[in-house]
């Protein structure tokens, strides 16, 4: 079953003033367990697409179904709840709550979900160990490197057991070695946790690691290739 299904997505910014057609009919289906890269030149519409898939923005027209729910029908408040329970986010920056430690950041969404203490503790510790930060649990984001912060963000995104994880240019602020390391960790977790990853990137070395590469240009998908590994 598809975790994400879109049909004929259009997105026009500023329709009344200077319209920008960011998406021009995107139909895409993402299956459970995929590790998919959305690529394309700057301004091609990657962020716009990911925001719509994540319920952060709504399309001008078209249909988006996430986990069997038509999210265009949800209210602003229902969307927040939906995101909390179904979608993990990794942003390019400003991912973590600065006043909370790595541990508390990972635990955060689980607390919002009201998961029991024991489960939270086990999962937080396990995930921080999986991203190689078992020794840094009590550090605040400002005491972590950029790569470490992104690893905490990946652990945080996974913790509430979402249906899939959206990462918009998660490596944009990282050097190539750190980027590779982050992608390795994401790949490993995709495999171990069977969680779907969708990420956008410019970086060819990151693209290499994707299992499927969807290329967007001028708001349309121009190629969609499965990568056999």
């Amino acid at each position: 079953m598809a975790v994400i299904l879109t049909r004929d997505l259009y997105k026009t910014y500023n329709p009344d003033t200077i319209p920008v057609h960011a998406l021009n009919g995107v139909s895409l289906s993402i299956e459970e367990g995929e590790f998919t890269a959305i690529v394309g030149p700057s301004g091609s519409g990657k962020t716009t697409l990911l925001n719509i898939l994540g319920g952060l923005d709504s399309p001008t027209s078209g249909y988006v179904e996430v986990g069997g729910t038509d999210i265009s029908q949800l209210s602003e408040n229902e969307l927040i709840d939906f995101r909390k329970n179904h979608i993990g986010f990794v942003f390019q920056s400003y991912n973590l709550i600065p006043v909370l430690t790595a541990y508390e950041n990972v635990e955060f969404v689980m607390l919002l979900q009201g998961r029991p203490e024991k489960e939270r503790k086990e999962r937080t510790e396990a995930l921080l160990a999986a991203v190689g930060l078992a020794d840094h649990m009590d550090r605040r984001p400002s005491q972590l490197s950029g790569g470490q912060q992104q690893r905490v963000a990946v652990a945080r995104a996974l913790a509430p057991r979402p249906s899939f994880i959206l990462a918009d240019e998660p490596t944009a602020n990282l050097d190539s070695h750190t980027s590779a390391n982050l992608l390795d960790i994401m790949g490993k977790l995709n495999h171990e946790e069977k969680v779907t990853f969708i990420f956008s990137t410019h970086d060819s070395r990151v693209i290499e690691r994707a299992h499927r590469v969807v290329t967007v240009e001028d708001g349309v998908i121009i190629s969609d290739e499965g990568m056999k590994r």
């Binding site: 709840d81 909390k84 329970n85 993990g88 986010f89 400003y94 709550i97 955060f108 919002l112």
Partner: peptide, 16 residues
Amino acid sequence: VRELGMLMAIGMNRRR
């Protein structure tokens, strides 16, 4: 602003 946006994106509701 960015941090608050992030909090709402990852599921912290308006009431909170």
